[in-house]
Structure formats: C-alpha cells, structure tokens
Nucleic acid binder design. Structure first.
Lengths: 231, 231
DNA sequence: GAGAATTTGTTCGTATGTATC
DNA sequence: TGATACATACGAACAAATTCT
C-alpha cells in the first residue's frame, strides 16, 4: 500500500516531538529535517504545516518553524476545551446510547486497565485517549470528532511531557468506571459530572508536576532554540 | 507589507467557492487554478490544503480535490457544533463579563442592524458572523476560538448557498438582542437558551429553503464534476 | 481492458526576505 | 547601521498514478 511521503514524515516528526527528542522551542529547519529523513523539502514543508494545524508546531512566514511551547495557560485551555467537547458528546449521546456502544466503552476501559496492570505505559496512554475519544464519539458528529482528533496530539504531548518527569502519573480507573456506570444508568448529568471531576483531577496533577519541576523544559528551550541536527 | 502568495490564492479560491462560481463537487485541478491566478502549482497546493482544513474542499491522495458537498447531515452537524461552541463561550464568559465587552457586543449588533437597514446583504452576513464570533470569544480560550474560525467558512458557505436561492433569509434582530440582554443581566442560562432558540430557527430556515429547491445545487454537482476553466 | 492523456507527488534550482555579526 | 549568511517561498521539471477514450 502506498502512503504519501509527507504523512510518513509528519508522523516521524510528531514522534520526535512527543518523545521529547525535539524540545519546545527547537527550531525546525526544513533542510535539516529533509536530510534527516532522506526526502526533499517538499514533504517536510507539508508535514510541518500539518503539525502546525494540530498545535505541535508554530510558524510564521519566512521564519523557521518551532516546536510549540506549552505554558500553564495552554494547559488550562486544552483541558477546558476537552472537557467541553466530551461533555457535549455525553449530553448528546446519552439519549440514543445503545448497548453495543456501551459494551465498546467497557472494552476500551478493560484494555486500559490491562495495559496498566502490565506496566505498559505507552499503551495505557493510548487506551486512555481512546476512552475519551469514544466519549466524544457519542455525539455522532464527525465535525466534533475532527476537533477532538485535532487536539489529541496536544494531549499526547502534554501527557508525555509530564510522564517524562513523573512516570507514575496514572489514571485512576475508578474515575472512568464512574462515567460508564452513569451512562449505563442513562444519567447524563452524573456522567458529565464524573467526567468533569476526572479531568479536573488530571489537570491538577499535570499542573503540580510541572510546578514541581519549575517547567525546566520550557526554560531550557527559551534560551537556545537548539538546532535540529541532520542524521 | 508582504503576504504569502498562497494566502492570496486561498482567499481567491475561497471566494469562488462561497460565491458559487465553483459549485459543490467541482474538480479543482491544480494546473488550471495555477494558470487562472498566474502562479505556480506550489501556492495552489498549499491553498487547497488549507481549504480542506476548513472543510470547503475534500481531497484524497493522487486524486483531484473537489469542492465539498453539504448534505442535510452536514448542516445538522455544523449547527449542532456551532451551538455547542457558542453556548460554551457564554457559559464560561458570563461570570467574568465586563462592561467593555458588553458594549462591544452591542456595537456589533448595531453594525449588523445598520447593514440590514441599508440592504447590505454581504455586510450583514459578516456582522452576523462577527456577533457569533464574539459569543465564542467570551470564553477567552484561543483554542476554542480557533475551532470557531475553522468552522466560519463553512457557515459562510451554507449561508451564501441559501441566500442565492432565497435572498430574503435575514436574521431577526430581536433574537440577538435577547441574547445580549440576558448576558447584561448576568443570566447565562437565559442567554444560552436564547442562543439555542436563535440557532434552531436559523437552521430550520436553512433546511426549509434547501428542501424547497430539492437541493438542486448538489444534484447538479454530482453528475458532472465540471472542470474549472483557466482564465 | 490497453494505451494515451491528464494530473498529482516529489525533487531541485533560484529569488526574496530574515537574522546575525 | 551595513554586509553577509541563512532559510524559506516560489517556480519548473520529472516520474508515477489515475482517468478517459
């Protein structure tokens, strides 16, 4: 099967950013990235545009793109918005919620708990996101879903940033279970409340960890703008 | 001041789509567009990507992009989402709503009414959108605002589509006034209710007009895929 | 269904604008 | 501030895939 080159490049750069190999504020020079991935500048340009679209990269005309920097405000915005989106998904979806969808939610949650039990941190993060993706999906609104997907890489980014400092930040399974159970009862209000509590706790954990470290990551990036080295 | 070429091209194509000169389903051939605007394919490609991002264009690898087609479902999705976003804006913003912001809202509404009084239909649409933009802005969440902006071209598109069939579809000023007054009272619940009623009416009007015409626009587009002619 | 024409995805060269000393 | 080095934005050509006859 054929995949456009820029998609491959986008995913590679995305992984470098999320893994922290490319840190916030780092300059992303098209030539260097092109050399690194053995492609021309075209696909790199497209990849960077796409990464800007999802908020992992910032750029202005005629200047090098940079890896985005997340301040406390960004964290607040992101969580506030995600909360709004998923609450909306629940509100709209709880009425027409069928059994199959509910079982799917249980399934995702079980996968998440299994991954956590096995100590599979990366897998757990993905299953966690998948759970939230499903909450958004309850609304059956493709445009809403697109918005969620657009934000998902920012979520991965902030989660990974924090995990690098404190690998122990794990989701309490109980919180997810509360949401599902409320949904199963058809109690949208309670489900939304449980979700909001869950996300509020998660955001607070994030903030704490970042505070504790003095957000060293962003400080480092602000001074340098380290250049990304070719392969 | 210097503006990137692809921005100009994007706006030109966008206007062609919204004005209906390029109809739903029309193939967008890079070479033709490049010739039409006297630029190379590079900026055109970028412009098309950007238009895909905002939902005015659809494309798949190795195939020509097309002007997006809006079915009844799309209309529902769009209005549902806009309603959610702006309700969220109101809910979050009503607490910290200061007088200056309120006056701004009144100002926008007055501009809207003036434009309508003068029979300036295009201006009225822009002021109408501006009013709704401000509602979203109450949340002071840049990411939420970005989502709204992303959807605004789809709104322009459907509004323009309907106006072409029935130019008389105008906003009832009273509905906007209700929202502002509720905000002025600090009554978020009422403001949200007024907004939702307003948008529900607007959506219904849209649907009616489209139904009445049998959505001829999309039918026509499905058969042909008329090729866009060079200048 | 095969071949020709069309159209995209990619590469590379060049000019213009930006940053740095 | 002025000159230089650097990086992007645009243009043109090539190869591969799709569409049309």
């Amino acid at each position: 099967m054929y995949r456009e080159l820029w998609v491959v490049v986008r995913d590679e750069i995305r992984d470098l950013i999320i893994s922290g190999e490319l840190a916030s504020g780092d300059r992303l020079i098209e030539d260097d990235l092109a050399a690194r991935f053995h492609v021309s500048r075209g696909p790199v340009r497209t990849a960077l545009m796409e990464l800007e679209r999802v908020g992992l990269v910032v750029s202005s005309p005629r200047k090098s793109s940079q890896v985005a920097t997340f301040g406390p405000d960004d964290l607040d915005e992101l969580y506030e918005l995600i909360m709004g989106i998923e609450s909306f998904g629940i509100s709209r979806g709880v009425e027409r919620l069928d059994d199959a969808t509910l079982q799917e939610l249980y399934g995702v949650q079980e996968s998440l708990e299994r991954a956590e039990a096995e100590g599979d941190r990366l897998g757990a993060v993905e299953h966690d996101l998948d759970f939230h993706r499903h909450l958004c999906g309850l609304a059956s609104n493709r445009r809403l879903q697109a918005v969620w997907e657009q934000l998902s890489d920012q979520m991965r980014f902030v989660i990974a940033s924090v995990q690098r400092v404190d690998p122990a930040v794990a989701t309490k399974e109980g919180e997810h279970r509360h949401i599902i159970e409320a949904l199963a009862r058809g109690d949208g209000e309670a489900a939304v409340a449980a979700l909001q509590e869950h996300l509020e706790i998660a955001r607070a954990r994030m903030s704490d960890v970042r505070q504790a470290v003095g957000s060293s990551e962003t400080d480092e990036s602000r001074m340098g703008g380290a250049r990304v080295a070719p392969s």
